[in-house]
C-alpha cells in the first residue's frame, strides 16, 4: 500500500505524525516476536512464503492469523476457516464503533484506510490518546498505524524465511509473550469506570466458554459477558450530563 505523504499531512501537522511514530515503537517491539513466530509457524504448517506474507498483509490480525494457519491443510472446510477468522476478529466491530466516534473529521477515504489499520494496539492507543484529551488527527493515526503494519508484514516474511531458527519457543517463554502483552493492555485501562467488575466478569465468562465451547468462542462470549455487565450497572443517565440534556 503506497500512500502519498500529503494524505497524512493534509489536515494536520508533522509533529502529530512524529508523535504517532513514537507511539508505534513499543507496539512494534512487543509485536515483533509474534510477527516472526507467525511467519515461522505458517511455513511450518505448509503455507508458501507468498501465502504467508499475503496473510500478514491482507488479514493483518495476529491472533486470527494464528488460528487460521492451525486450520489450513485440507481437513477443515474452507468456509469454516474463514468463519473462525471472522469469530476471532469479531471484537473489531466494537473497536470500529468506538473509534468511529473519534474520527468523524476524517474524509471517507481516510476512514476506509483507518479501519484497515484498526488492530488491538491501534484501538488501545487511540482510546488512550483520546482519554488524555489529545486530538486524534489523521497524521497521528497513520503515523501510529503504518509503521506497525509495515513491520508486521516484514516480520511475517522474515519468519517465513528463517522459520527454522526458533525451534523451541517454549524454552524462552516466547509463546507466552502474547497473553502477557494483553495483560499489560488490560491494566492500562484500570482507571476506567467499573473496570474491576468488567474484568472479573469477562475473565469468568471466557474461562467458562473456553472450557465448555472451546476456542475461539471464548473471546466473543467472555467479552460480551463483561460488556453486558457494564451496560447493566451503568447509571441510566451519565452523571454531570443531566442538566445539559434538559
Amino acid at each position: 500500500m503506497i500512500l502519498p505523504i500529503g494524505f497524512f499531512m493534509a489536515s494536520s501537522s508533522r509533529s502529530d505524525f512524529l508523535s504517532g511514530i513514537r507511539d508505534s515503537v513499543p507496539v512494534i517491539v512487543a509485536a515483533a516476536p509474534f510477527g516472526v513466530l507467525f511467519g515461522a509457524l505458517a511455513v511450518d504448517n505448509g503455507l508458501s512464503l507468498f501465502e504467508t506474507v499475503l496473510m500478514s498483509a491482507s488479514i493483518y490480525a495476529g491472533a486470527s492469523q494464528m488460528v487460521g494457519i492451525e486450520l489450513f491443510g485440507g481437513t477443515v472446510a474452507p468456509w469454516l476457516v474463514v468463519l473462525s477468522i471472522f469469530a476471532v476478529n469479531f471484537r473489531h466491530v466494537l473497536y470500529s464503533a468506538a473509534v468511529g466516534r473519534r474520527i468523524t473529521h476524517f474524509t471517507p477515504l481516510q476512514k476506509a484506510c483507518a479501519f484497515f489499520f484498526l488492530i488491538d494496539p491501534q484501538y488501545a492507543e487511540t482510546e488512550r490518546r483520546a482519554e488524555q484529551e489529545k486530538p486524534i488527527t489523521v497524521a497521528w493515526y497513520f503515523g501510529m498505524g503504518v509503521p506497525v503494519y509495515l513491520f508486521w508484514v516484514l516480520e511475517g516474511f522474515l519468519g517465513g524465511v528463517f522459520g527454522g531458527l526458533i525451534s523451541e519457543p517454549e524454552t524462552y517463554g516466547i509463546d507466552f509473550l502474547l497473553p502477557l502483552y494483553f495483560l499489560g493492555l488490560v491494566l492500562g485501562f484500570r482507571t476506567r469506570r467499573n473496570w474491576t467488575p468488567v474484568v472479573i466478569a469477562s475473565a469468568i465468562g471466557s474461562i467458562i466458554a473456553f472450557h465448555f465451547i472451546g476456542s475461539p468462542w471464548h473471546v466473543s462470549v467472555g467479552a460480551l459477558t463483561g460488556i453486558a455487565l457494564a451496560a447493566v450497572i451503568a447509571p441510566p443517565v451519565r452523571p454531570g450530563r443531566e442538566r445539559a440534556s434538559q
Binding site: D120, F182, V186, R192, N194, S202, A203, S215, G222, R238
Partner: peptide, 24 residues
C-alpha cells in the same frame, strides 16, 4: 448512556478474554 458504558468496557473486556484462559 448504556451503549456508551458498554463501548467503554470493550477493550478491557475483550483483552481479558485473551489473558484469563491462558492463565488458567
Amino acid at each position: 448512556p448504556r451503549v456508551e458504558a458498554a463501548l467503554n468496557a470493550v477493550p478491557a473486556a475483550v483483552l481479558t478474554t485473551l489473558v484469563a484462559p491462558a492463565a488458567v
